[in-house]
Amino acid sequence: MSNLHPFPAAPAVPPSLPLPFDPAMAPALRSRMLRGALPEPLQRLLDRGQVGRHSRFTEDGFADVVEDWTPPDGVTPRHAALARRALAEIDETILAPAPANHLLGRVLALLSHFPAKTTTPEVEQLLAMDWADDLGEFPAWAIDQAARRWRRTRKWRPSIAEIRALCEEACAAERALAERLRAIAMAGERSGETGGGSASVRPVLASAMRRMR
């Protein structure tokens, strides 16, 4: 009789379909459709997670109110596999960083609406490169929304920090969902390593709910 033991089978995960996403939709509807397209086991875990809030302080004093989200107990390796697949699709498509050419073109176009009288074209180009570096983490649709919102509501030249804040606001719901899926994946993988079914892990989501401006 052979002493060899078969390797444990990987959790079976059904093939995924492209997640629905239209950045032109209202944020609430967009978020609801995206979440509703996830596998039902993930939706149930997202509904059962625990949310806590606490104040965050820096050396300068109060900074903002932070939300902590913790997965419920009972997260399994199969849940982790489902979460990893959905997370990969969100990260690689919906939240994928904007292409460099698109980002730089959008920044130059935005700044051209608010020309600086004492800035040479060479300096303008260097400034645009700084903008591209500081906005490089955001998807193209969030940058486009931020630029459009600024053009339509402001009469002065924007700062990088102001456009970053608008970009963060534009994709806040999608980033929060991605972080919660990441928390589920980590909990399920930890459960598989320990052989238990508990997902008692430290909160891993800390997204700013309100910033002092």
Score class of each variant (00 low, 15 high):
Gly195Phe: 08
Pro115Thr: 08
Leu126Met: 12
Pro139Ala: 11
Ala12Arg: 10
Arg202Ser: 13
Gly36Arg: 06
Asp134Arg: 14
Gln145Thr: 01
Arg56His: 09
Leu135Val: 05
Asp64Trp: 04
Ser16His: 12
Ala24His: 11
Arg56Pro: 00
Arg211Tyr: 06
Pro99Ile: 03
Arg210Met: 09
Phe21Ser: 03
His5Met: 14
Pro14Lys: 12
Met33Tyr: 08
Ala176Pro: 00
Leu135Phe: 04
Pro39Leu: 06
Ala199Thr: 08
Pro6Ala: 13
Arg148His: 07
Thr76Asp: 02
Cys167Ala: 14
Glu162Pro: 00
Ala109Asp: 15
Arg182Leu: 11
Leu4Ile: 14
Ser112Cys: 02
Pro23Tyr: 04
Pro14Val: 10
Arg152Gln: 15
Lys117Glu: 14
Asn3Phe: 10
Glu162Lys: 10
Asp60Tyr: 03
Phe62Leu: 14
Glu174Arg: 04
Gly188Ser: 07
Thr118Asn: 13
Ser207Ala: 14
Leu4Val: 13
Gly52Ala: 15
Asp73Met: 05
Arg56Ser: 12
Arg210Tyr: 08
Pro23Ser: 08
Leu126Thr: 11
Ala86Asn: 01
Glu89Arg: 15
Val204Asn: 14
Glu67Leu: 12
Cys171Asn: 04
Val75Asp: 10
Asp144Lys: 09
Leu46Glu: 03
Met33Pro: 00
Ala199Val: 04
Pro158Ser: 05
Arg78Gly: 11
Ala140Pro: 02
Arg148Glu: 12
Ile94Asp: 11
Asn101Gly: 06
Pro203Val: 03
Arg48Ala: 15
Asp22Trp: 00
Thr118Tyr: 11
Glu174Ala: 08
Val204Ser: 15
Asn3Ala: 12
Leu104Arg: 14
Ala146Arg: 02
Met25Lys: 05
Arg148Lys: 09
Val65Arg: 06
Gly74Gln: 02
Ala208Pro: 00
Ala185Pro: 07
His54Ser: 11
Ala98Ile: 07
Leu4Met: 11
Ala199Ile: 03
Phe21Ile: 04
Ala187Val: 02
Ser198His: 09
Glu174Tyr: 05
Glu122His: 10
Arg175Phe: 01
Gly52Leu: 15
Val13His: 01
Leu17Ala: 13
Val75Gly: 06
Pro77Arg: 09
Val66Tyr: 00
Ile163Glu: 03
Pro11Leu: 05
Arg30Val: 01
Arg84Pro: 02
Gln125Glu: 15
Met186Pro: 01
Leu108His: 13
Ala173Val: 04
Arg175Lys: 11
Arg213Pro: 13
Thr70Gln: 14
Pro11Glu: 04
Thr120Gly: 06
Gln125Lys: 13
Ile160Leu: 13
Ala9Phe: 07
Leu110Ile: 09
Pro18Ile: 02
Ala88Lys: 12
Pro203Asn: 08
Pro14Glu: 15
Leu126Trp: 06
Glu174Pro: 06
Ala63Gly: 05
Arg152Trp: 08
Ala81Met: 08
Ala109His: 10
Phe62Met: 04
Phe114Lys: 11
Ala28Pro: 00
Thr119Pro: 01
Arg32Trp: 03
Arg213Tyr: 10
Ala140Tyr: 06
Ser200Met: 06
Phe57Asn: 12
Asn3Arg: 09
Ala63Lys: 05
Ala146Pro: 05
Pro99Tyr: 06
Ser159Asn: 03
Val65Ser: 00
Leu181Ile: 03
